[in-house]
């Protein structure tokens, strides 16, 4: 007995009623789903895709912009750094020059001060020596006049003493 043709069952027998029912059902389902399911879903998906695409495009543009800005900033940074380095260099040079100048001035000043001080000292020494000589002469005269109990002419005395002192100084200078 044929297996699939058992009883009233024929695998390839078309039932016209079923054909009509299938067509009717399918067309009803097609129309209902078309209007109430596919249309909204497709438009929603398309809207979302469009939005995503727009967002992507926008973000791409933004990124490009940001990259340009970044590049610009980097360039600016680079030039600023170069400028700063140059400034620093210049500053250093200036400072060097300034330093040399200041040092030179200071040296000069110091030398001037030193020479003046030496001159002062010399002057003071000369003065002191002359004063000392003066006072020594006077003191000696006084002492001598006391000793001699007589007044000698001041002028003569001074002459004598100065002569003596000159001798002493000479010997002093020679001795020292």
């Amino acid at each position: 007995m044929p297996l699939l043709a058992a009883g009233s069952f024929n695998l390839l027998a078309v039932n016209p009623g079923l054909v009509i029912w299938t067509a009717v059902t399918f067309i009803v389902v097609l129309v209902v789903l078309w209007l109430f399911a596919w249309k909204p879903i497709i438009s929603a998906i398309d809207a979302r895709n469009e939005r995503v695409e727009n967002d992507l495009k926008e973000s791409r543009e933004l990124r490009e912009k940001a990259e340009n800005l970044l590049r610009e900033y980097e360039q600016k940074m680079e030039s600023a750094r170069a400028e700063a380095l140059q400034l620093l260099d210049e500053g250093k040079k200036d400072a060097e020059v300034q330093k040399a100048k200041i040092i030179a001035a200071a040296k000069e000043e110091a030398e001037r001060l030193l020479s003046r001080a030496q001159a002062d000292i010399e002057q003071a020494k000369v003065k002191a020596i002359s004063e000392l000589e003066q006072s020594t002469v006077e003191t000696t005269v006084q002492i001598l006049s006391r000793i001699l109990q007589r007044d000698i002419n001041d002028e003569d005395h001074k002459k004598i003493v100065l002569q003596e002192l000159g001798a002493i100084r000479k010997s002093n200078i020679q001795g020292s």
């Binding site: 109430f36 399911a37 596919w38 249309k39 909204p40 879903i41 438009s43 929603a44 998906i45 809207a47 979302r48 939005r51």
Partner: peptide, 10 residues
């Protein structure tokens, strides 16, 4: 489902 999706597509 379609109605829900269409209401808030984003």
């Amino acid at each position: 489902t379609a109605r829900k999706i269409a209401k808030n597509p984003y």
